[in-house]
Design a protein around this nucleic acid. Structure first.
Length: 526
RNA sequence: GGGCCGUUAACUCAGUCGGUAGAGUAUCUGCCUUUUAAGCAGAGAGUCGCUGGUUCGAGUCCAGCACGGCCCA
């Protein structure tokens, strides 16, 4: 117990030192003149009896909703509208004259211009208004009118400070461009870049559609452990953590698969889970250490049924988000209307990858080919590993239009059912769009004897590069022994799906707070 | 893990051959009651990522490190 205490003592001490460093780092910008001036202005407002952070604002009307109704009214028609409108939002641009000003007020629905005149709101109120800054959140109320340039505008009868901004917003025209700053300070990115906010609204819509599709098709949404004592369901290096009271190490899950299939055994014959997985691997344009995965399992279905389901689901999303099954992604025009192309893994290697057919069952030839491409795989791996590697390099990037690749080798598909005609391959597919893997699915292996053998063989043949703790999940085998109905299951990479439908080139553009090194230095608990 | 590029004011960016640090936005002061990247006049604002080296002198050249981006494995 003492050892644990010591460990945390040192850890906390280190955190203290580093957070002090970070505070110093931040203080530098605290010293900046603009921030000092803002803080002073805030104090001046307080001296005038203004609450900088009031909490008695009634829910305002939304700028977007007002515009939607009154955008079609001309100046004359607006004069007949006697209603006043009360809005609240952030001052985004401010054009002051001597005794009047225009500013644009932005809320989550859009923005609307406000006109403030001294002679209308009163001398004292105008004096206070003069201390408002770009970035402040304010409330304004008044009637609608059209300016000389025909912009729908609220003529303010009163304006009120809602939240004082102590720090200037980024430059008004260029916004915040530096990608590092945009990811670190997503709040500023969201304020300044409307398209970023739109991307995350689209993300939310896609997730809602996924959830709706599965629940309305009789699937039960479940939550299974994210902290697992045996890591399984995929091949990836896990994050390790420790539970003090139990005194055991736990792994953050790399996939929920084995738990979801236990639920098939338990009698939930259509289940899905839409949640985070964690993989302790590299970060790239399509990899974040934590990412969102949708996995669903359907009893009495086969992988072929799931291809149809996937086509239907994705086409529906395309219609809803893009209004068409055909849409642009970066430099490509994608056509999502079913049916999609289907090829076996080997066919794709020959037809797309240009690998001679006679090499396909020859490990040495494949390894030689890989070496020729500068890839050191090592000898004596299972055949499937060479095929998969060649596929990754030669075929995957070329699969721009939606394509199902089927018949993956059994030796790299330890949880998939063998193909009835050819037991060396499985009833499995992966879906590729824009050169990226989007989904992985198979008819599930439910023969406990075969599963146990494959687990044990996987452990025995574990290569040094595998990074999976060599452990057979015997409880999962026991569950299969109770009996799992024939089923098929699929995992869909939600972040990549969102990238596709929001035309985003990087996974970091669709994750609100992507993983970065902490500002001001590394920290390690070890 | 490797290669290339970047890091200068709160933000977006210039900075020539190594010779006292620049612009726009934002901020402050003054003028201005229909602007919308408002305008005009003026002002203030910098640990040039960090550490070392070369040099009479380094934002600039060299080395190492940090953080980030892109490409490759």
């Amino acid at each position: 117990m003492q050892a644990v205490t010591d460990r945390f003592y040192h850890w906390y001490k280190q955190i203290d030192i580093e957070s002090k460093k970070r505070e110093e780092f931040c203080k530098l910008s605290e010293e900046s003149q603009v921030i000092k001036q803002r803080k002073q202005k805030a104090q001046e407002l307080e001296k005038l009896g203004i609450n900088l952070f009031p909490n008695d604002i009634k829910p305002p009307e939304r700028a977007g909703a007002i515009k939607k109704v009154y955008e079609k009214y001309d100046a004359e028609a607006l004069e007949k509208v006697e209603d006043t409108f009360r809005v609240a939002g952030r001052i985004m641009a401010l054009r002051r004259f001597g005794k009047a000003a225009f500013f644009s007020l932005k809320d989550s629905s859009g923005s609307i211009q406000i006109h403030v005149m001294r002679d209308r709101i009163g001398k004292d109120a105008y004096k206070i208004f003069k201390k408002f800054d770009i970035g402040d959140i304010v409330e304004a109320e008044g009637r609608l009118f059209r300016t000389k340039t025909n912009e729908l505008t609220i003529e303010a009868d009163r304006v009120r400070l809602v939240t004082k901004s102590m720090r200037p917003l980024p430059e008004k025209y260029h916004g915040i461009k530096d990608k590092e700053l945009r990811y670190r300070r997503r709040y500023e990115d969201l304020i300044m870049n409307d398209d970023v906010a739109e991307t995350f609204r689209t993300r939310a819509r896609i997730i809602q559609m996924l959830r709706h599709y599965f629940t309305s098709n009789g699937f039960l949404e479940v939550e299974t452990p994210m902290m697992q004592s045996i890591v399984g369901g995929a091949t990836a290096r896990p994050f390790v953590t420790h539970h003090n009271a139990l005194g055991i190490d736990l792994f953050m899950r790399i996939a929920p698969e084995l738990y979801l299939k236990r639920l098939l055994v338990g009698g939930f014959d259509r289940v899905f889970e839409l949640n985070r997985n964690f993989r302790n691997e590299g970060i790239s344009l399509q990899h974040n250490p934590e990412f969102t995965m949708l996995e669903f399992y359907e009893a009495y279905a086969t992988y072929e049924d799931l291809m149809v389901r996937t086509e239907e689901l994705f086409a529906q999303i395309a219609l809803d988000i893009k209004g068409d099954t055909k849409f642009q992604y970066q430099d490509h025009e994608i056509e999502m209307a079913p049916p999609w192309k289907r090829m076996t893994l080997k066919e794709s290697l020959v037809e797309v990858g240009g690998v001679p057919e006679e090499e396909l069952d020859d490990k040495d030839a494949l390894n030689k080919r890989l070496e020729g491409m500068g890839v050191e795989m090592g000898k004596d791996l299972v055949l499937g590993k060479y095929l998969a590697k060649l596929f990754d390099l030669l075929v995957e990037p070329k699969l721009i239009q939606p394509t199902f690749i089927t018949h993956y080798p059994t030796d790299i598909s330890p949880l998939a059912r063998r193909n009835a005609q050819d037991p060396s391959v499985t009833d499995r597919f992966e879906l590729f769009i824009t050169g990226r893997e989007i989904a992985n699915a198979f008819s599930e292996l439910n023969d406990p004897r075969d599963q146990k053998e494959r687990f044990e063989e996987q452990v025995a043949k574990r290569g040094d590069d595998d990074e999976i703790p060599p452990e057979v999940d015997y409880d999962y085998v026991r569950a299969l022994e109770i009996g799992m109905p024939p089923a098929a299951g699929e995992g869909i990479g939600v972040d990549r799906l969102v990238m596709l439908f929001t035309d985003s080139p990087s996974i970091r553009d669709v994750i609100l707070f992507p993983q970065l090194r902490p500002e001001g230095g590394k920290r390690s608990a070890s």
